[in-house]
Nucleic acid binder design. Structure first.
Length: 502
RNA sequence: GGUCUUGUGGCCGAGUGGCUAGGCAGAGCUCUGCAAAAGCUCCUACAGCGGUUCGAAUCCGCUCGAGACCUCCA
């Protein structure tokens, strides 16, 4: 098995992953801004990094996974009126800002649970780390890389770039931008007279009179700038240098670029070794995002209550849909694609379930050496695919190739002794590992309770009897009426009957 | 305008220069009282034009198309 390789946005190539402290991984992922309901686009990074987290744990690492909650509302649009979007919306909804933040945080957590993501080890909030942020800003100022103007503090990008380029840490190192080009090309924005340079960014903003969210600082009442929370909190919980920093591609610039600059001043190094950026979910070829007005919220997705949705989609279908694509590719949303995912997932999960209850008499040596070898190779390849920058799509392809083998053994056209015992054990172990433990997939349809299951079994027995008597009117009636209720009976090869809910 | 990414069969999507990705849909067959499920088989594409190479979806150039970032964004 080859070592895990991760595509590092910083170096723009795949690199062998080596953690700073052997056996441990520190990973920071930019979390949601809880000023509104999460949408499908948000599902991608959290599901992607959930799998990264699970896989690293599988590899034996003890992972400290930190994912923040941005609840401190930063300036909405710098160029226009600096305003706190959280407090602004609170006025509209007549809620206290913290009430609003709580509501959307809870909704976010609910969504994450629906997607079956594991909780991060630490989930720090920006409002809970105002002190740390202020301390960091003070340090940046003391070092001469920030200046105060009328209660606001800005990062001096030009000076930083001049000095840190000598240390091979120019501004733009992550996104590949050249400062001079940006100064020429960046758009002319209003209300920037406070800044010495238009590329400078805010570390602390003075709170306007109507601003509700405000904290005392050495520079007066205000609120922290957009980027400082991640620098402060990642440093606090993961140290000056940690292993993986993740987030959506749209955060690469300026957010992560600014984080690097802030941390470089304070800690003299790039905060993370490996920078991972997931690509966007698009809808009709366009990025799903607030600005495009094309978002589908979790609640709408799960209920089907949205003009663009033909039907409701189960969270597991979304999860599967996302894993079917490599995380660095764009993923285009469409009803057709999700419906295909729904069917595919069902087939995979049924195969997985069948494997668990398969009654085989595996011999020492496989009766069908070719098949045995094929199964083995499909299984072992999965680790290689994952180690190649988390190739979940390819792993799924292999899992699908194994499904006919499972069904074949069940149906009996593959003999029970075709596969050796050791291969069979590996087969079961790896299916379990990938389907549930690493990919976090669960069966969509719920199981019937004891009672309902009993009732269905009675009907199945009655139908079997009817069939034996060639009373097809009765047998078809049972089947059709159950089907009308969404319970699908499936006659299997050996005379068994299984059912599924639609 | 600057920086970058991308263009794969009906749809969604893997693809490291040479070997059938896979899923969904569709067609045929097997099983079956019928249907469904399941199994087997088929549908073999890489925007266009050049170039490099024994060989290119994969590398290079040009043309056309799409998108992202440069402003809050996952």
């Amino acid at each position: 098995m080859e070592a895990l390789q991760i595509y590092n946005s910083l170096t723009r190539k795949k690199e062998v992953f080596k953690s700073i402290t052997p056996g441990y991984v520190g990973m920071y992922v930019c979390g949601p801004t809880v000023s509104g309901e999460s949408h499908l686009g948000h599902a991608r990074p959290y599901i992607t990094f959930d799998v990264v987290n699970r896989y690293l744990q599988h590899l034996g690492y003890k992972v400290r996974y930190v994912r923040n909650i941005t609840d401190a509302g930063h300036f909405e649009e710098e160029g226009r009126e600096a305003e706190d979007k959280i407090s602004n919306k609170a006025f509209l909804e007549k809620l206290e800002p913290m009430e609003l933040v709580k509501k959307y945080t809870d909704l976010f957590h609910w969504g994450m649970k629906e997607f079956n993501t594991l909780s991060p080890s630490i989930e720090p909030t920006a409002t809970g780390h105002i002190v740390e942020q202020i301390e960091m800003i003070k340090k940046i100022m003391a070092d001469g890389y920030a200046y105060e103007v009328d209660g606001s503090v800005y990062f001096d990008v030009e000076k930083y770039n001049r000095d840190f380029s000598k240390k091979d840490l120019p501004y733009g190192i992550l996104s590949g931008r050249v400062l001079e080009d940006m100064q020429e090309s960046s758009r002319e924005l209003e209300n920037q007279e406070e800044k010495r340079n238009k590329v400078d960014f805010a570390l602390w903003k003075k709170a306007p009179a109507k601003h509700i969210m405000r904290w005392m600082s050495p520079w007066g009442e205000g609120f922290p700038g957009w980027h400082i929370e991640c620098s402060a909190m990642s440093t606090k919980y993961l140290g000056k240098e940690f292993d993986i920093h993740g987030g959506g591609m749209d955060l690469q610039f300026p957010h992560h670029e600014c984080e690097i600059a802030q941390s470089a001043v304070c800690n003299d190094k790039i905060p993370a070794r490996y920078w991972m950026h997931n690509n966007m979910i698009t809808i009709n070829g366009r990025k799903m995002g607030k600005s495009y007005n094309n978002i589908i919220k979790f609640t709408e997705l799960f209920s089907g209550n949205h003009p663009m949705l033909d039907q409701a989609y189960h969270p597991m279908v979304i999860r599967f849909f996302i894993l079917q694509t490599h995380y660095r590719s764009t993923l285009d949303f469409s009803n057709d694609a999700l419906k295909a995912a729904e069917k595919g997932l069902r087939r995979l999960m049924e195969g997985f379930e069948t494997l668990g209850i398969l009654n085989v008499e595996s011999p020492e040596n496989a009766a069908d050496a070719t098949l045995d070898k094929k199964v083995r190779s499909l299984i072992t390849e999965m680790d290689d695919f994952m180690n190649d920058d988390f190739g979940t799509a390819k792993v799924l392809a292999n899992l699908f190739e194994l499904v006919p083998v499972i069904n074949g053994i069940k149906d009996g056209h593959i003999k029970k002794d075709a596969i050796s015992q050791s291969t069979m054990e590996l087969f079961k172990k790896q299916m379990q590992l990938y389907v549930e433990d690493i990919f976090g997939l669960k069966k969509v349809s719920e199981h019937a309770g004891e009672q309902l299951n009993g009732v269905i079994q009675v009907l199945i027995e009655l139908r079997k009897e009817a069939k034996t008597k060639k009373d097809f009117v009765t047998s078809d009636r049972i089947r059709n009426e159950l089907a009308a209720l969404g319970i699908l009976l499936k006659d299997e090869k050996g005379g068994n009957v299984s059912y599924q809910f639609e």
